[in-house]
Design a protein around this nucleic acid. Structure first.
Lengths: 209, 209
DNA sequence: TAGATTGTTAATCGATTAACAATC
DNA sequence: TAGATTGTTAATCGATTAACAATC
């Protein structure tokens, strides 16, 4: 843990360091300097040293950084050395997509259940999970000690679902509904808005050069 | 089109303005001041006026902004007044998810085809689309005048696919593979990395307060 | 040892906020 | 008209880059 408040700009770069160092590691690279890393990752060498020094002194003068050790440090900083239990709320298109998208599973986020409120979806099998009734949501979260929920409902229901999750003691939410849910003191929220990525693309298409 | 170079920070806020104004519009709100909008959207009134003034003089002193007119302006700025033809490359989990995720369709992005290189996937039906052979990719893009491609392959194949798409004359790419593809002069790229959102959540879970 | 490269301080650059004249 | 609110300029704040002493 660091003494200073880490800016959001730095935090957003951490996953890139993680990925890049992971690739170097798997290619068998043992050491890397901020200058070499800069060429690969696209941040300035100065920025790389600034960023990393926020969390500790990981490098050696005249030598650079040990790839394996630095990778582990970044992993720890990001909390990727832990396992998390997750659930999906909403068994529609996005919910089903997340259920099938096994990438999260590869990083230690284990899916435990899928919930919906619609009678015709409850009981349906999605990738080996029987859709559960949202009425049992709170009980399940507490009994199974669920850490993270994916909100995959529509925007209107998302707010009710958020309140329910928060009261049930969920720790984190990845929200795919088209509302910006605000962090409260208990729950950490990440809003993921795929259409906004598309709109940004659209902007650049229209305003190219 | 504006005289100044618009910063990325401003561009990222545009979809939020679009969504918020859309909601106000559908609720029948006719006018809004930067101060009122600030309370809803969470940006400062000053920032809202700064942002909007980059693109024109949309407000009226003493009155504020007309919701409908401003919404249309933002729509135009983002290029959402156009229709786009899209294709999916990669019929795995993400590819299938995008095919079923009809949100993009709601905003004028019409899916025209799904491609894969794997023999066992070609011909498979996904949401009404028969998976096509990637060998026909270039021909299809040119004949059907495709604007945007979703790259839903793994990271290694993504680079080859990108080159192929670029040569075929695609205009924009929404990349879901775990590589950062770089914009070249012809193609506009948006990299969407879902795991990075999860990692950010993970960071905040670990470093809460 | 000499060359290389870090961690950190200072300088620069860019983005956000504040202030206010213009004016509906 | 008087009050409200814009668009814009100036001030502030924060993030990135440059520079360099420390040292492996």
């Amino acid at each position: 843990m660091s003494k200073y408040k880490i800016s959001l700009a730095v935090i957003k770069r951490l996953p890139k360091y993680h990925r890049c160092l992971g690739e170097l590691k798997s290619r068998g690279v043992r050491r890397i300097s901020s200058g070499e890393l800069s060429k690969i990752i696209g941040f300035s060498a100065s920025q790389i040293r600034q960023d990393l020094s926020r969390f500790g002194e990981f490098g050696q003068q005249g030598y650079g950084y040990r790839v394996n050790a630095l990778y582990s440090e970044v992993e720890k900083i990001l909390g990727l050395d832990k396992k998390y239990s997750t659930i999906i709320i909403g068994a529609g298109n996005i919910g089903q997509a997340i259920a099938k998208y096994n990438d999260f599973g590869n990083y230690g986020y284990e899916l435990k259940a899928i919930f919906d409120i619609k009678k015709d979806l409850i009981g349906k099998d999605i990738n080996g999970f029987k859709v559960m009734d949202s009425n049992n949501l709170r009980e399940f979260i507490q009994k199974e000690d669920i850490d993270i929920a994916y909100i995959c409902t529509n925007a209107e229901n998302a707010i009710d679902v958020f309140n329910e999750l928060s009261e049930a003691g969920i720790k984190g939410i990845l929200n795919f509904a088209r509302v910006d849910l605000q962090n409260d003191d208990n729950v950490v929220i990440e809003n993921v808005h795929l259409v906004e990525n598309m709109f940004k693309l659209s902007y650049f298409l229209k305003n190219k050069n």
